[in-house]
Design a protein around this nucleic acid. Structure first.
Lengths: 126, 126
DNA sequence: GTCGTTGCAAAGCGTTTGCAGCCTA
DNA sequence: TAGGCTGCAAACGCTTTGCAACGAC
């Protein structure tokens, strides 16, 4: 992360504007929509570099591609819409997580993922 | 799932004996340990067929391979050891999950994943 | 004997990497 | 102008699929 290039600025702007975690495919599609496409390898290398710089963090969704979001957010979890495959941020968390951890095991991180239909897909189905 | 073959019996027995969700690679390794190796394609096809027959279900662990476990278990969640990469079952669940779901969204499933060190890896480190 | 199942190898698909050329600092 | 960054294409690792041979029923 030593030089600021057109590609990096574009990717950072796209992630900041998204309002939800984006996959590399989504990032690439959004660069094309802005008529400023770039190589998929650059997207992968950039999100990796931005992660190492602690500017973004990855969001692993089970059974789906990894998404990326800015790392300056408060602790939160994610909602995965099974219809449009988009991921949304959910505010808050649940206590009592240590209660689930098996005896003798140490908890370092936790993830709560809710799957279902987002508001848009619910509306469209009606 | 029309014929019961040596390969299918073996895979079913391995999953039943495991006591924790297994990946296709783990299943294959366990068949080899029993000196009864088989093709990796057979493992994939068998877990798919067993899933369609509702005998097992897949456990998607973020950033790791899919694991498989018998589907006759009570509702539970999973612990992922970041050192040995094994996945363990955790009993119980947390209430209040609907509290996290965004307004206008519908929750269908949820997943709680705790990451850390399992008892074995904690002991070995000491 | 039939045809569902297996094993191999090839094909897919998302992700990573090698390398020549580009462009930021 | 140096060398970090990009884009292409090849390589990779995991998963799926085509096809001939096998074996459960």
């Amino acid at each position: 992360m030593q030089r600021m290039t057109r590609q990096r600025l574009l990717i950072m702007r796209i992630i900041e504007d998204a309002g939800r975690p984006l996959s590399t495919a989504e990032i690439l599609a959004l660069t094309k929509r802005r008529r400023a496409g770039l190589g998929i390898a650059t997207v992968y290398r950039t999100v990796k570099a931005l992660g190492e710089a602690d500017w973004l963090q990855s969001v692993d969704m089970p059974g789906s591609q990894v998404r990326y979001e800015k790392s300056d957010k408060a602790h939160h979890h994610h909602f995965h819409c099974r219809k449009c495959d988009r991921v949304f941020e959910m505010h808050g968390c649940l206590g009592e997580l240590h209660r689930l951890t098996p005896r003798g095991f140490s908890m370092e991180r936790h993830e709560i993922i809710i799957t279902g239909l987002c508001a848009t897909c619910l509306d469209r189905r009606a």
